[in-house]
């Protein structure tokens, strides 16, 4: 940048500040400055636009979902096998740690407690958001392979044609095709929903392509069902709400437990019942669960530290 450009930029910046509390004389001076050189307006407007954007964002409250910088739980395979299961929680940025890791790269583990949500960037730039009570493992050597051991994660994948992003979830693998998608794992049960792009679901001989608005539920017994979901409702838990269209109550109960941090179980009589509707999570757990029960038409009662849903 030349000295003249630099000076003009400084002056433009001064005007952005000064015009915040300008009287008529200030405005006349600003007008004269603009008139002195057409480069002045060219320098001023981008700064004024950036200033307005910054102010608009600052005027917004921070989004309601609590987001804490991820502290990966580092776990060394050889250490775990040979010595003792140290799963020390070490506050280290993933990227930093990646470059420092010598030789064979051990797995990196991300964990959240129930009721807690977290977001992070993976080394390849993929954004991941973790719902409560979730455990996600980055497989050491390959930054494009992750394993969802339990819970729910939403991925916004940086697509690379030469290196598909693969999520292992139980017996299945999900291959992204440039994608935003959400995955839930509850034991052997899996639910996938796609907001953008596409995901290839693979399990043994099964291979299904899921497009935006498609969701897939794999029951604990291996049965696979597909359904539709509004793309805007994929990973709605990130905005502290849950949306369902004909979803078994077992899965709703599991979602509530993940989101509130309180165990929610189901009477066997309710097994197989389905729910359609939207739930908000911005309230204390007992209020969230009471409202959800009312909407689902079931009764919620205390059960030890948690809640049990039963026929009303």
């Amino acid at each position: 940048m030349t000295d003249a450009n630099n000076r003009i930029r400084q002056e433009a910046l001064d005007w952005v500040i000064r015009l915040r509390h300008a009287d008529a004389a200030d405005w006349a001076a600003f007008d004269a400055w603009l008139g002195a050189d057409s480069a002045h307006a060219d320098a001023y407007w981008p700064l004024a636009t950036a200033d307005a954007d910054v102010a608009a964002a600052l005027a917004q409250p921070l989004p309601s979902a609590e987001v804490i910088a991820l502290e990966p739980v580092r776990k060394r395979r050889w250490l775990a096998a040979a010595l003792l299961p140290i799963a020390a929680s070490i506050a280290l940025a993933v990227g930093l740690w990646w470059t420092l890791a010598p030789g064979a790269i051990p797995d990196t583990v991300f964990e959240t407690r129930a009721g807690e949500t977290r977001e992070a960037s993976l080394p390849d730039g993929t954004r991941v958001a973790l719902n409560g009570d979730t455990r996600l493992v980055l497989e050491g050597a390959d930054p494009r392979r992750v394993r969802l051991e339990r819970g729910e994660a939403r991925f916004a994948v940086v697509h690379r044609a030469d290196a598909p992003f693969v999520v292992s979830v139980g017996a299945a693998q999900l291959h992204d095709i440039g994608t935003v998608f959400d995955v839930v794992r509850d034991g052997a049960a899996v639910r996938v929903a796609v907001a953008e792009g596409a995901v290839q679901y693979r399990e043994d001989a099964t291979s299904l392509r899921l497009n935006p608005g498609d969701s897939l539920t794999r029951g604990a017994n291996g049965t696979i069902r597909t359904a539709r979901i509004a793309p805007a409702d994929v990973a709605a838990w990130r905005a502290r709400r849950l949306t369902y269209d004909q979803v078994p109550l077992e899965l709703v109960a599991a979602d509530l437990a993940r989101a509130t941090g309180v165990p929610v179980t189901l009477d066997t009589g309710l097994a197989g019942r389905r729910f359609s509707g939207g739930l908000h999570l911005d309230a204390p757990p007992e209020a969230v669960i009471a409202r959800a029960a009312a909407l689902m038409g079931v009764r919620a009662r205390r059960d030890g530290t948690g809640w049990r849903l039963s026929e009303r």
Binding site: A57, L58, L62, E196, A232, A239
Partner: peptide, 22 residues
Amino acid sequence: EEPDTDRRMIAEEEIRAVHAAV
């Protein structure tokens, strides 16, 4: 009117990012 999920995520991220930058 209704931002799609990804735009919404970026919007939230922008808000967080600006607060963090300040």
